[in-house]
Design a protein around this nucleic acid. Structure first.
Lengths: 204, 204
DNA sequence: GCGCGAAAATGAACAATGTTCAAGAAGAAT
DNA sequence: ATTCTTCTTGAACATTGTTCATTTTCGCGC
């Protein structure tokens, strides 16, 4: 076997295990929450040693952050799949997509927002950017709806609107502190956006 | 010394230590976040044994929950101190009070919302009720502003509005994912509420 | 194939931390 | 003073993230 094949075989194996580890970690977080994720459980499920997890991700945070990175990406993909033809419709769909994702992946989304780094290491910039970008996705439709407003003003408005939606959803889906009952969340969110748009002088 | 004094002396001592333990735990959480709170640190700072912490609070969750209980109470007190003469003003002040509390006690408030029980024990009902009650404090002013609306409708609306404010603030104050810059948070929140009220057909 | 050196895998050992509990100390009751 | 109850203590334990010396694997030149 030549160099290229040899090299790629090793890399393939390594990459495959990496994927397996991530998938297992994600499944465990999704099933039982970030808090009950243990290195040993992941290693055992992947049929490898504890040390291998460390070789691949550096430390436990590394694994969690990788899962979180995937979570933001999946969320972003879902939000980006919202059609952009009608801006008002788009805003509704964005909120709805967020609600859908939060419903289906509650523990994964919580892991993203609630995870704190070990010690006081800084939060990775790339994940931060990805989240910020996701939260900026209401910007485009709002620019179309408010063409005369100051650009930075709309930028702030869009992030604020998304933060509000996030707050309503995350508290509404929290089993314990039900601020808004889950079964009414969908229509309530739509109403919320309509009300806010009306307050901005727009009609849905 | 008679029975009553003996009894109360013991109780006083016990109560005093309880207060000390709570105060230390609160200070540690406020300073470094819930994650870095350790039983041994609390015990050492209180100059008692680890076991005494367990005698007093049952387990570590017990101590945390007690601090969280105090946090909700302090938050509620602050929200209740908002004058109730003008309903629109009251809504603004409630948001502002929440922002103030979240700014001054960021780690304590995070501990309240992010703490997960050990294993899967249920979240204590009393704390849950207290949080729900706090989040219902926008109800009264909204009832005055919307006297013709259905009661349960306004109840939902008020919790949703508070959840939205919570989302904007908690993400805005998160050092890492700054959705809305802290220095603009105050005026932006006011604007947010005005916009929403306008959408409801009201004028600030 | 063979042997060598680099890279990776392993899991025992370690460190940090929540929890328990048997033994002792302190206090209440008589 | 004695006894019984209660509280306090901290050593020992269980769990879990982390390290690292050892072993295994693997690529590569011969």
């Amino acid at each position: 076997m030549n160099n290229v094949q040899e090299e790629s075989r090793r890399d393939r194996k390594r990459l495959q295990r990496r994927v397996v580890l991530i998938e297992i970690a994600r499944r465990l977080i999704a099933a039982n929450g970030l808090r009950s994720l243990k290195v040993r459980d992941v290693a055992e499920a992947a049929e490898c040693s504890i040390g291998s997890v460390y070789n691949e991700f550096g430390d436990f945070d590394g694994l969690i952050l990788t899962v979180n990175r995937d979570t933001v990406q999946a969320l972003t993909d879902r939000l980006n799949a919202v059609p952009a033809d009608d801006p008002i419709r788009q805003l509704h769909d964005l909120a709805d997509a967020y609600l859908g994702f939060a419903t289906e992946h509650a523990n994964l989304l919580r892991a993203l927002f609630e995870h704190r780094m070990e010690d006081d290491r800084p939060f990775p910039d790339d994940i931060l950017s990805m989240v910020m970008d996701a939260f900026a996705l209401m910007h485009a439709p709002l620019v179309r709806l408010l063409p005369d407003r100051d650009a930075s003003d709309v930028a702030l408005l869009s992030r604020m609107m998304f933060s509000a939606v996030h707050g309503i959803i995350s508290l509404g889906l929290e089993e314990r502190m039900v601020a808004v009952p889950p079964e009414q969340l969908r229509e309530r969110l739509a109403l919320f956006i309509d009300t806010h748009l009306a307050g901005l002088g727009l009609h849905g």
